[in-house]
């Protein structure tokens, strides 16, 4: 891809000899918002952590993740520390565990500015107040001294976002940023995130299991299952004409709000997501797939023109 903020090739993440991410290739086009959809165990969070160099002890990443001319996967820690919180930023799902409980939020928001921009304590604090205002925390100047437990869940997540955008990052990875929030707050935080990404000209990778969230915020989608990307394309294309049976199943599993169900039954995908190491060989979805046959014993390539699908029997 000509203008990509990040180009990932053959990314693998290995956990105890097993591949949780199985060699995926994708690019994040500059300034665009890409959604990464997957359920627990699909490998979506590990993909993000591998890119950020934050994999827990014992997990190893393979492949290449090119950020400009640098491969994030083979950079020394010192260089990664320069990039993280500056050019690359991340928002985590649970702000209560991601924020430091014994440090005022103002100091936490100011920290990347002091570390990466060399601002004085005073200047960084002034800037932190401006950032808290930008993420619409009321009485921002006063809230600087508040500790995370004194903020509501929505405010904590806003503070996390303020911290992430402090240095105007090129790439912002948000991992289930609104899953822990109430619906009314979720809508506000999503709108805020979308606006800030545009204002900063940042590239967004939004990780979620929630399809409508991606539909609202992202212009491109990657669908992951069992460590593979199984479908990829423009959001309107993928949701307008889903081709992989898994994507179709996920969409059908969203109950309609405006009409009754024809037979009074909610649509479900058969079975459950297997544990790591329990996925079948070949296509990981084939044990749950209504279209599977013998051909699916071999993993299909992710192929197509713009709208890609990894399936031997895709929907038209």
């Amino acid at each position: 891809m000509k203008d990509a903020t990040l180009e990932v090739r053959h990314l693998t993440v290995t956990v105890g000899g097993m591949r949780a991410v199985r060699g995926i290739t994708f690019a994040l086009p500059r300034g665009r918002r890409t959604g990464l959809i997957g359920e627990s165990g699909s490998g979506k969070t590990l993909t993000a952590l591998a890119i950020m160099g934050l994999l827990p002890e014992g997990l190893t990443a393979g492949g290449v993740a090119m950020y400009g001319a640098e491969d994030l996967l083979s950079l020394p820690d010192s260089r990664l520390c320069e990039l993280r919180g500056d050019r690359l930023a991340m928002v985590f799902q649970e702000p209560m565990t991601a924020l430091n409980p014994v440090m005022p939020v103002g100091a936490q928001v100011a920290e990347p500015l002091r570390v990466h921009r060399g601002l004085s304590r005073r200047d960084a604090t002034l800037e932190a107040a401006r950032l808290l205002e930008r993420v619409q925390i009321p009485n921002a100047a006063e809230r600087l001294r508040a500790y995370p437990h004194q903020l509501s869940g929505g405010q904590r997540q806003r503070a996390m976002i303020a911290m992430a955008i402090a240095c105007s990052p090129d790439l912002l990875i948000a991992d289930e940023p609104t899953t822990a929030l109430d619906v009314t707050v979720q809508a506000q935080v999503l709108a805020l995130l979308g606006r800030l990404v545009d204002e900063e000209g940042a590239t967004l990778l939004l990780i979620t299991h929630d399809l409508p969230v991606v539909d609202q915020l992202c212009d491109r989608v990657l669908v992951m299952y069992g460590g593979w990307i199984v479908e990829e394309g423009e959001t309107d294309e993928v949701f307008g004409r889903p081709r992989h049976p898994y994507t179709v199943g996920l969409m059908d599993a969203i109950p309609p709000l405006d009409e009754d169900l024809p037979d009074g039954r909610l649509r479900a995908i058969a079975g459950s997501v297997p544990g790591l190491g329990e996925f079948p060989s070949g296509c990981p979805f084939r044990t749950r797939c209504p279209r599977a046959d013998d051909a699916c014993a071999v993993m299909p390539p992710l192929a197509g023109d713009g709208h890609l699908v990894a399936c031997w029997h895709p929907f038209a």
Binding site: D210, L211, P212, D215, D236, R241, D252, I254, L257
Partner: peptide
């Protein structure tokens, strides 16, 4: 509450 439920703008064909 109803309005804040995220919805799919487009729905693909039901299999």
């Amino acid at each position: 509450l109803l309005e804040s439920i995220p919805r799919l703008r487009t729905r693909g064909p039901v299999a």
